[in-house]
Design a protein around this nucleic acid. Structure first.
Lengths: 123, 123
DNA sequence: CTCATATTTGCATCATGACGCAAACGAGCA
DNA sequence: TGCTCGTTTGCGTCATGATGCAAATATGAG
């Protein structure tokens, strides 16, 4: 038996987190080079081309191109083709509100957990 | 030549993001099972044991144990041994403020980028 | 059209990580 | 002490992903 009966097995004190806590965002950001690319894009003023971004990490240009495409597919970056170049920029508003939504959801969930803990501790 | 000379190569419009944008957090959260574990811990009221957490994902208990240790090492979870059991809980305050710090830093950076873009566009 | 530059893609290789199983470890209990 | 339960760890396997190189594609210039 893996489940002790001391505690209700699946009590929930808040909205489900699965909707905001998407692995897609974290999966896109789990590679150090992609994080460096994101930082590079945030710190540079305005959009950058693939070649410019490639300066930030010591990998092949084609790898940077793939990383950028991955971040774009995850909804983190915006890509705009201008002539021969592709200009990548951060979808800052979306990213920021996603991060804040996650933070808010966790805060709400665990505030509820604290309340429940107090209720259990001193009823 | 990979660097065009049209644009200053490394203009920076904000504080560096490397300090807040640590790959460690994202690396810990890039696995779907770990995200599910985090959601499970957030939604349950108060700490849970390894066996309880293991209900949320269809993998071996030992794997869940490893995932929990990984999240703990990343500073996301808190572990407390009580007798034979280990109770894991989310370090909610730290996690929430980390996420908000990232959001704030990106927002500041890209607000600066917008200003710089406007300045470049209509000087 | 031909060429040069910027980017993407196909492919092979290699490292990392997730997983399951079994054994080990630690704590309570008879 | 011996036993059981909960958890962790060692180890081998397998899948996934990052990388580099070369070829393909796209676009602008001459």
């Amino acid at each position: 038996m893996t489940q002790t009966s001391k505690r209700p097995p699946r009590q929930r004190c808040c909205e489900p987190l699965g909707s905001v806590l998407s692995p897609r965002l974290f999966k896109a950001l789990c590679d150090p080079n992609r994080v460096a690319i994101l930082a590079r894009l945030a710190e540079s003023c305005g959009p950058s081309t693939v070649s410019q971004v490639a300066e930030c990490c010591p990998v092949n240009l084609s790898v940077v191109s793939r990383h950028l495409a991955q971040l774009r597919d995850a909804g983190i970056l915006h890509a705009e083709k201008r002539g021969k170049e592709v200009h990548y920029s951060i979808r800052a508003e979306e990213l920021v509100s996603t991060l804040r939504a996650i933070a808010d959801a966790i805060e709400r969930c665990c505030a509820g957990a604290d309340q429940a803990a107090k209720k259990r501790g001193a009823p």
